[in-house]
Design a protein around this nucleic acid. Structure first.
Length: 954
RNA sequence: GCGGAUGUGGCGUAAUUGGUAGCCGCGCUAGACUUAGGAUCUAGUUCCUCACGGAGUGGGGGUUCGAGUCCCCCCAUCCGCACCA
């Protein structure tokens, strides 16, 4: 064995540990660079080959930057709170801390084998009290701040109180601040705090026994586990992330992220511009039922006549309104419904409210609704329009009421058709072309064209009409320009055990923070991880879970007296709490006085490069941006956007292998290409470990499962060929490729290089072990450049030839450019070409090979380190200097030594515009430069275009 | 339905950024050395054709001296959102 990775890799991994090679200090003369990976949740299944993909890419970049002379922060940690550990605890009674600890140890072992350059001294774990102290601390800061819309940033809640005391800010109820009771004041402030408690409709998952955030629910099912989720009104902690909606949209302009990811975030925030308009109720036609409604509406809106507020993005279509629709939850329904319609409306509202999210979403296309009997007045046309109630209007968006323009909104159109309501065209695609909407099969929704039948805006383009209508509405005092966001506040409570406790206790029903000095508030031990018999969250089982205000400490809850000792909050924080600020903590992970010091954040600023999966687009990446913006407002983080450049690595899918069992004979398995009719066989997934290049190891297959012991095979050319399909990598599909096995067989360097060679980092691709042999072969060849056939070092100090130098400098140039563009697959190719060419040239010159070990060090650190030392260098290749390429060998010298990367050489010279092929050939042959370049050889082919020659193939 | 992305040999991919396709690797074919090889080396490998030659980057059109690359229209696949007024 010549290239012995089994010996090399553990040796240098130990060396790096001993020498603390990757230890990073917070101050340096060198420029700083921060490379971060999304830290993993340590699941019980361990790593599969998909996990390290991003880590390898970021490690290459971090090592490269270090060689370029940067002080590089490249940390790793664990997102250790989470549902699986708790579910496991419920089933087995094992403390989640214990399983988490075990899983972390396994992850660390696996990571270490791959040779990453993490500074493990900076490791953080979200479940560590040293760490979650600062998660709790940030929560208290959020609780103690509100968003000041005038200054456009978070300010201490005490400033708001001061304004209220001075009477500078009116309270909505009309009571002055001084007249309010303590409880009323606190309730009032809750409407402003950035972390607040409120009764809100939440996503309740009965199976998991907890509420979930919007991004944790997909199609009415929980992301974890896939259990049904229903809407329920509950008193929950929330984060007022909506206050930052505009800044979250604007900030996307500042960062270097992929367009698709920015787009996902923009859609999630869902900014839409439009107008809010008051539609007055038609009082005359409703007089008999309206005294209550009138009083109510006069109270909630400043209009002289009782009115409904609607939101629209198409104010230009206001002349086409033929009815109004309220959501079933709308508070005015009861008041306006006429006695004749009452029974029907109530039945509908009850039915709608009891439907689950899933039912609603599954039946989106079904039209339902009911007429209230009441009418409103279109404020511009003064027409009387009927008011309906329907599910398709959502309570959570806008005002829960819409003006319906069936001609120009497909949902309104469907509704109008179903209930036979009038449809009126007010926009035409081409100027002045109108038709009878009765003949339409669909509405004209596009925000383009011209207004028709629209009073004073008739003839205007849609865009102008929008502006004109809003101006008019504002002048009339019945509405205004406004912006709406789809983004909702983030629900922050979880009815779980394994998460950060809230540093909050309840004094006379008022949420009260525990003093900052008493943090962290430790997660208590409990006997059982399930909810309590009374339906309280698991923390209800904790005996030591009450707060003694005098002693400032946690005490047994039997001591609760309502005077000094009070109950503590029973829910815990969600997963995204701990992951929202971890990148800042890495800067100063052992600081017990502050979240992180001003010096540390002043030096590192923000993450320069963040690598991770795109699945966090609408979760973690929004929450972290919000978190960071808040910390920026209160003067902690120095850059508003936390992640400057973001690279999303693609998912690695599994390639599942199948055997085909005959339906007639249970013991007969037919090779893929011998199947006559697919219906005659049933495909069965087989473990990819007993399949090699789609060829089944029939012996091992018989041993794999008892039921296959008597298997017989119909072979082609003596082989059993399996079928395959690309699926998610999962244990149950037997298609999981474990990195440890590959490291054992080929070494970490080969695994690293091969994962990069697979294709662009950003692309999702199936795992396929086939090609790894090629990379392994490359390393053996590379090793042989330095060694004789008897495996002794054979590097010479002779001066290299220009041909050799040309190969080296081309490699330096190409690899440097590739790393900068994050195109690691092409760098691997470059190394292979370089090695092949040097082997052909029989190059063994130190001045060529030594820089090469540095170039390959980011990709294959172990072999690079070994060769570096074999060449007689001390210290570590990790601190070497990245070689610079010399143009001389790329341009001038290439004339003499036309070694080329793709078998073609390029030569450019000026030619007349009307030059023919013959003229060009003659001109080339006559040119001294070209002659020099071709070095006496005859050109085989000259490809030219007017003005210049492109390729000359010798 | 809306939004985003992608489409190149048997397969993963590359293409000097608009320059005359298929680099590198896998696989395959032939050969060499070998007791043997799933080791190593050499040559070949887009397709059609014995060959000459021709076709060719999902399909169709366009711009250009020149298009895998730019523009328009389809088709297919993947991802995200989904009654958001």
């Amino acid at each position: 064995m010549d290239y012995n990775f089994n010996e090399i890799e553990p040796k240098w991994q130990q060396y790096w540990r001993d020498q603390k090679t990757y230890h990073v200090e917070n101050n340096s003369e060198k420029p700083h660079y921060y490379v971060l990976d999304m830290f993993p949740y340590p699941s019980g299944a361990g790593l599969h080959v998909g996990h390290p993909l991003g880590y390898i890419a970021s490690d290459i970049y971090a090592r490269y930057k270090r060689l370029q002379g940067f002080n590089v922060l490249h940390p790793m940690g664990y997102d250790a709170y989470g549902l699986p550990a708790e579910q496991y605890a419920i089933q087995t009674g094992q403390h989640p801390a214990k399983t988490t600890e075990q899983n972390i140890r396994r992850y660390r072992e696996q990571l270490d084998k791959i040779g990453f350059s993490f500074d493990w001294d900076r490791e953080v774990r979200t479940c560590d009290p040293e760490y979650y102290k600062w998660t709790q601390w940030t929560f208290l800061q959020l609780y103690n701040h509100y968003y000041d819309n005038e200054q456009g940033k978070a300010r201490p809640i005490s400033e708001l109180v001061a304004k209220l005391e001075k009477g500078e800010q009116r309270t909505e109820s009309g009571k002055s601040w001084g007249e309010m009771t303590e409880k009323e004041q606190q309730d009032y402030l809750m409407n402003y705090r950035l972390a607040y408690l409120a009764d809100i409709p939440v996503n309740w998952c009965a199976e998991l026994g907890t509420v979930l955030a919007n991004d944790e629910v997909v199609n009415g099912l929980s992301v974890r586990g896939g259990y049904p989720v229903e809407r329920k009104l509950m008193r929950q902690w929330s984060l007022r992330i909506t206050a930052y909606a505009q800044r979250l949209v604007d900030g996307l302009e500042e960062v270097d992220w992929s367009e698709s990811l920015k787009e996902i975030q923009r859609n999630w925030i869902g900014r839409s511009e439009g107008a809010a308009v008051w539609f007055p109720l038609d009082v005359k036609s409703n007089e008999n039922v309206l005294p209550g409604a009138q009083a109510y509406m006069q109270q909630v809106n400043p209009q002289p006549v009782p009115s409904f507020e609607i939101f629209t993005t198409r104010p230009d279509t206001i002349f086409g309104v033929t009815f109004m629709v309220l959501c079933p939850e709308h508070e005015l329904i009861d008041q306006i419904t006429t006695p004749e319609q009452k029974a029907e409306v109530e039945a509908y509202v009850t039915w709608a409210k009891n439907r689950s999210e899933r039912e609603r979403q599954a039946e989106v296309k079904k039209v339902s609704g009911v007429f209230t009997g009441a009418y409103a007045i279109n404020p511009l046309t003064e027409e009387k329009i009927p008011i309906w109630v329907s599910e398709y209007v959502l309570a959570g968006y806008g005002t829960g009421a819409i003006m319906a323009v069936p001609a120009h909104d497909s949902r309104d159109f469907a509704f109008a058709r179903h209930f036979n309501l009038p449809i009126r065209q007010v926009v035409s695609a081409e100027k002045d072309v109108v038709s009878d909407p009765a003949t339409w099969t669909e509405s004209l929704d596009a925000k383009s064209g011209w207004s028709v039948n629209s009073g004073f805006v008739t003839g205007m383009k849609v865009k102008e009409a929008m502006a004109a209508v809003i101006d008019k509405i504002e002048k009339m005092g019945i509405g205004h320009r406004t912006v709406n966001y789809r983004l909702r506040d983030a629900i922050f409570s979880r009815q779980r055990y394994w998460g950060e406790p809230f540093p909050i206790y309840y004094k006379d029903g008022i949420a009260t923070p525990i003093p900052e000095e008493s943090l962290p508030l430790l997660l208590p031990e409990i006997s059982e991880y399930k909810p309590t018999a009374t339906g309280e969250p698991p923390l209800g089982h904790a005996d030591n879970w009450a707060w003694d205000e005098e002693k400032c400490q946690v005490v047994n809850k039997s001591l609760i007296d309502g005077k000094k000792v009070f109950p503590l909050e029973l829910s815990t924080m969600p997963g995204f709490a701990g992951s929202s600020g971890y990148y800042l903590r890495y800067m100063d992970p052992h600081n017990d006085k502050e979240y992180f010091s001003k010096e540390a954040v002043g030096y590192w600023r923000n993450v320069d490069l963040y690598v991770g999966g795109a699945e966090h687009a609408s979760g973690h990446l929004i929450y972290a941006r919000f978190w960071n913006k808040f910390l920026h407002d209160i003067g902690l983080s120095v850059v508003e956007e936390p992640f400057q450049k973001l690279v999303n690595q693609g998912m690695i899918q599994g390639r599942t292998s199948f055997v085909f069992r005959s339906k007639e004979d249970k013991n007969l398995f037919i090779s893929k290409n011998l199947i006559k009719n697919p219906d005659d066989v049933s495909p069965i997934r087989v473990d990819i470990n007993i399949v090699d290049n789609d060829i089944l190891d029939t012996e091992r297959f018989r041993q794999w499962r008892p039921e296959f012991a008597d298997a017989r095979f119909e072979l082609e050319d003596g082989k059993y060929v399996c079928g395959w399909e690309i699926e998610k990598m999962s244990k149950t599909y037997y298609n999981v490729q474990n990195p440890d096995d590959l490291v054992a067989r080929y070494g970490a360097d080969t695994l690293r290089m091969y994962e990069m060679f697979l294709g662009p980092v950003e692309q999702s691709k199936p795992w396929d072990t086939k090609g790894i042999e090629g990379v392994f072969r490359f390393f053996k060849k590379f090793w042989r450049l330095f060694h004789d056939s008897d495996n002794t070092l054979c590097v010479s100090d002779e001066a290299p030839s220009n041909a050799e130098l040309k190969v080296l400098h081309q490699t330096i140039k190409k690899v440097t450019e590739d790393i900068e563009r994050f195109s690691f697959n092409t760098s691997v190719s470059t190394f292979m070409i370089c090695t092949n060419e040097l082997a052909t040239l029989k190059c063994n010159k130190r001045t060529v090979l030594e820089p090469l070990t540095i170039l390959i060090a980011p990709f294959a650190p172990h072999i690079a380190e070994e060769l570096w030392h074999l060449l007689g260098n001390g210290e570590t290749v990790c601190n070497a200097q990245w070689p610079k390429f010399n143009e001389k060998f790329l341009v001038e010298e290439s004339f003499k030594y036309p070694v080329s990367f793709n078998g073609k050489m390029r030569f450019t010279m000026e030619l007349p515009v009307d030059c023919t092929q013959e003229d060009a050939v003659a001109a080339v042959k006559a040119s001294p430069e070209a002659q020099k370049w071709m070095a006496g050889k005859e050109p085989k082919k000259i490809i030219f275009v007017p003005k210049r020659i492109i390729n000359i193939v010798c």
